[in-house]
Design a protein around this nucleic acid. Structure first.
Lengths: 236, 236
DNA sequence: CGGCTGATTGAAATGCATCAAACAAAGTGG
DNA sequence: CCACTTTGTTTGATGCATTTCAATCAGCCG
């Protein structure tokens, strides 16, 4: 336990892409002002509607960010991993959080106070530009996802989500997705019912596109999935 | 015609909220570097995939911003009006445009070169913060819309879109929506088929929620629409 | 072991898309 | 000025993807 605490204090943010444009001096004070925490799977980082005191940089682990819709049904907005930052949107707008963030793989997070963020934006224009570009990238993805959900079938979207997960979380030597999701989480990402996900996964397995072992998903035919995800829903 | 040209040159951006944080000096050079254009309904401002040289501030008129999905079907991302800025997302990311923008009500636009934008971000941190907050607001809306499309029925979404249009474009004395859309555009906003929109509009009319006269939509029962829309987040 | 959560399958209900046809309004050109 | 095309609107009929409800099963844990 003592070891763990010590290693949390030793973490430096200098290696993370988001802070690349910081001067030596800025990094030193940033590392002084940040607070790192180790969190277990299932922990809630912040809840929709809560007041935020800063944003978080993910040092390790995976986080799901979701909105709560009708009847409390989750809509997962994104999965964030090492190097990603979360909570900055509501923080910058100075609103209460409009999403909930939950650890789905044991994580270490760095909390950076709002004041520190504002200070960086004020003093370091290169940092501002980095920040602007990160949000722009996220907005682009959001717009693309709107188009997808509005126009594609569940089948197409599931194939697409599997491919996106592959891009973001890689495969191990065995071609297995390195992120473990429940069927329900997958459904809440794709925007459909759990049962539909189960049926479609089983169909994909039957068509030799994937293999399943509990929550492990092995991607064995990327081209096939790409075809399903992109083009018409003409079933070949 | 000469009059028109002269009045275009006379436009100043000082009144627009986006440029509020600019100094006198910055405004002067901005007004020198900008270019204003008058555009008719149907004109394309920029196309998906094209290279952008700057962003645009809408002085007057209405613009629809959409992505082209499967079979060229439009997904309308937003309607922008006076004071809004467009094209800034792809510009900041230094990518080709990921949306198309088209005039749907005769407009006057101001083009601001990329260099000018970068200069402002570099020199004026207060402007950067404004910019960050604008993008954050747009991202918030996008995330909310993802949740809506994923979880709500077409019927609920149509009611919601009508209410959103009411918020953004107001009603005239007659309670008629001050934005004129084809059924297809409405469908491409809601994310459904044109026929579905027609049927639902006609149902809403039957239930005395709205009145229809060609493309004019008169909102006569806001509460009823709100109830159908299943709005969780009260907007004022 | 019983109680829990998550996964699976089946059957039935339905919302919505799609296709087709007719109609209206608004140009276009001879 | 009238036939003619075009574009947008409307309505009906049909099919299907997906949701919903219900039941069972598998795995895990104290």
């Amino acid at each position: 336990m003592k070891n763990l605490t010590e290693s949390l204090d030793d973490i430096t943010l200098s290696g993370f892409r988001f802070f690349r444009s910081l001067s030596e001096e800025e990094l030193t004070s940033l590392n002084y002002e940040k607070t790192c925490t180790s969190l277990k799977k299932g922990s809630i980082i912040y809840k929709e509607g809560s007041r935020l005191t800063g944003f978080y940089c993910i040092i390790k682990g995976i986080v799901k960010v979701y909105k709560t819709g009708i009847d409390g049904k989750e809509q997962i907005i994104r999965f964030s991993r090492k190097g990603d930052i979360i909570a900055y949107r509501s923080l910058l707008s100075q609103e209460t959080a409009c999403t909930t963030s939950e650890i789905i793989e044991d994580a270490i997070l760095c909390h950076v106070p709002y004041k520190t963020l504002l200070n960086l934006i004020e003093k370091n224009s290169s940092f501002s530009l980095t920040m602007l570009r990160i949000i722009c990238a996220e907005l682009k993805e959001a717009n693309e996802y709107i188009t997808d959900i509005a126009q594609k079938t569940v089948r197409e979207r599931l194939a697409e989500v599997l491919l996106l997960l592959k891009e973001n979380f890689d495969l191990d030597a065995d071609k297995t997705l390195q992120i473990s999701l429940t069927r329900e989480e997958l459904a809440n990402t794709v925007g459909t019912a759990t049962e539909s996900i189960i049926r479609l996964l089983s169909e994909f397995r039957h068509d030799n596109l994937i293999e399943l072992q509990g929550r492990k998903i092995k991607i064995i035919n990327i081209q096939g999935l790409t075809k399903i995800a992109n083009l018409t829903n003409a079933r070949s």
